[in-house]
């Protein structure tokens, strides 16, 4: 296949950027999208030009490193990660626009590479269960009903890729935050810190200048791990509950 890739090139964080078109030949349908970028980069290197910078590591859809906006869709047309997107989803001669995640909270470092450390700070503010090493009781002493375990697991599969933020018209991190809160707050082990967790994580989310949620649902469409919209409802519920209790106007 022959494709034209229009890619956002930006030398550095403060430098201005713009779209540059590259023609890439002999792309095979069973190549992954990142392998196509590899191919382009090998050409560029051969031509002595600066290759396109993009994040990737596992190339299996699990580490959450990769992620670009392809034709206006985070991770492209398929419900998967950029590294697991295969070229067979495009047709010969297509022109493909490739842009970095766009959000105030995710400043561009170079080309398609952005800084997602805001996500780490959200987790640091409460996305954990306090269980110092060695303090754990026998694993089977707290049975967890399978449905609860499955729900927690579903939310725990979030790979922190940031596609939800990239896709949300408001650049909101609600889905990411909601997934972690759901994972930990559903589990009996997470109950003791239930309120402080959600309060701190939402506070941090706001401080990191993500937008708010207007229930657009774009994030869910882009999410490669199928984190459901209900998780956002759950986040709101958990948050408002913690605030009501803080204001002393709710039993619990």
């Amino acid at each position: 296949m022959k494709l034209t890739l229009r890619i956002w090139r930006q030398p550095g964080p403060d430098a201005p950027g713009h779209m540059v078109a590259y023609a890439v030949d002999d792309i095979r349908p069973d190549m992954s999208f990142v392998e196509t970028l590899d191919l382009l980069n090998q050409d560029l290197i051969a031509r002595g030009e600066d290759p396109v910078a993009f994040d990737n590591d596992c190339r299996e859809g699990i580490c959450g490193s990769c992620g670009v906006v392809i034709n206006g869709r985070a991770h492209g047309p398929e419900p998967t990660t950029t590294c697991q997107l295969h070229m067979r989803t495009f047709t010969d001669g297509d022109v493909i626009d490739i842009e970095p995640w766009r959000a105030k909270a995710f400043p561009v470092i170079k080309d398609l590479v952005v800084n997602r450390s805001a996500f780490d700070r959200i987790i640091q503010s409460g996305g954990y269960i306090t269980a110092p090493t060695g303090s754990a009781p026998e694993a089977n002493s707290t049975p967890v009903p399978k449905p609860v375990a499955d729900l927690a697991f579903l939310n725990a599969t979030c790979i922190g890729c940031g596609a939800c933020v990239a896709a949300c018209p408001n650049g909101s991190a609600m889905l990411f935050t909601a997934a972690k809160v759901a994972h930990l707050n559903f589990l009996p082990q997470g109950r003791p810190e239930r309120e402080s967790r959600v309060r701190r994580m939402v506070e941090t989310m706001d401080e990191e200048s993500f937008g708010g949620c207007t229930n657009t649902g774009e994030c869910v469409v882009a999410c490669p791990k199928g984190i459901p919209l209900e998780s956002i409802a759950n986040l709101n519920r958990e948050y408002l509950r913690s605030r009501r209790r803080r204001a002393g106007i709710a039993p619990g």
Binding site: I129, A149, L184, Q189, G190
Partner: peptide, 22 residues
Amino acid sequence: VQIIDQCVAQGVPFAREYGGRL
């Protein structure tokens, strides 16, 4: 043996049987 205990306490959602056991 201790490791599984530690991970469960941290909220690692291991697969469970219907009885709620690992």
